[in-house]
């Protein structure tokens, strides 16, 4: 019985894994075909000769500063994630560990605001950025995402699970609220912080809509928006280079993820939102 269950599980896992991985494998194979060649049929999917130079071609496109896109994406996501962690964890700490008047009301506002993201606030936020002259600068890319209601929610849930006695003991020793937050709670919440950071990072790195409208010059484009140029450039007549561009956008995320994943998935599971 137990063996049967194991076999079925393995079978399902492998099947699902193949289903999820196949498109990626396909993408890599196509990216190695000769530029401008026709779409390969299934039997000729693996190219006779791997055209690695496609990667070089894409990375050195004269009018498309891919390196700059990378820099922009890294800068924006690192700063914004750090900001989110600080600002959200402060708020989450107060919501979880200090009873204060208006706490419930305020927290429900945060919950509600998860509905307002993106499409609903785009126009006013755009106009606001315009009136302060931040459009097409890093400020427009970073400031609107410096705090994140989802992180507040996630961190609060985690902080709630830490025994209150710890704070009280620290406070007995004369610790201030800041000290408790910085020296007691945060060190205990590394997994939750990592989780919030990972969610934040994935969200920012793959965001397309806001960078699309908030930036204009080539120098300010993020990787995601910058490389969408490839899709439109070839209008379906150069699949190998398109797939090369897709692999290039994807690879950094994949590497970060593979490094962070153990910490990350564990973090979510341990700091479960009950």
């Amino acid at each position: 019985m137990k063996i049967l269950k194991g076999v079925i599980s393995w079978f399902l896992l492998l099947l699902l894994g193949a289903f999820l991985i196949a498109p990626f494998a396909w993408m890599v194979f196509v990216s190695l075909h000769e530029s401008k060649s026709a779409i390969p049929v299934m039997s000729k999917l693996v190219p006779e000769k791997a055209h690695w130079e496609n990667y070089w071609t894409v990375l050195t496109m004269p009018n498309i500063p891919v390196a700059r896109f990378f820099l922009n994406s890294i800068l924006v996501s690192v700063i914004a994630v750090m900001g989110q962690l600080l600002i959200s964890s402060l708020a989450a700490y107060a919501f979880a560990r200090i009873p204060f008047r208006g706490s419930n009301f305020l927290f429900s506002l945060f919950l509600l605001s998860m509905m307002f993201a993106g499409v609903v606030t785009q126009i006013p936020v755009y106009l606001m950025m315009r009136s302060v002259g931040w459009l097409d600068t890093y400020l427009a890319l970073i400031v609107p995402i410096l705090s994140n209601s989802f992180s507040v929610f996630l961190l609060r849930q985690f902080f709630l699970q830490i025994p209150m006695e710890l704070d009280e003991a620290a406070r007995m020793d004369g610790a201030t609220e800041w000290t408790v937050y910085w020296r007691v709670i945060l060190p205990l919440s590394k997994a939750a912080l990592a989780t919030a950071a990972a969610f934040g990072f994935f969200g920012i790195w793959t965001d397309f809509f806001w960078p699309l409208i908030a930036t204009n010059s080539m120098q300010m484009r993020t990787l995601e928006v910058g490389l969408s140029v490839f899709k439109n450039s070839y209008g379906g007549t150069n699949w190998p280079l398109q797939m090369t561009a897709a692999v290039i956008v994807l690879l950094p995320m994949l590497i970060v993820f593979l490094f962070a994943q153990r910490f990350f998935i564990k973090g979510v599971v341990v700091g479960s939102i009950k």
Binding site: M82, L85, L86, T137, Y138, L139, I142, L186
Partner: peptide
């Protein structure tokens, strides 16, 4: 975590520069 929070300050400077 302290290191990470401290990089915010550094990051902020870079952003200001780039801005």
């Amino acid at each position: 975590w302290q290191w990470s929070l401290r990089t915010i300050a550094i990051g902020g400077c870079i952003a200001a520069l780039a801005g």
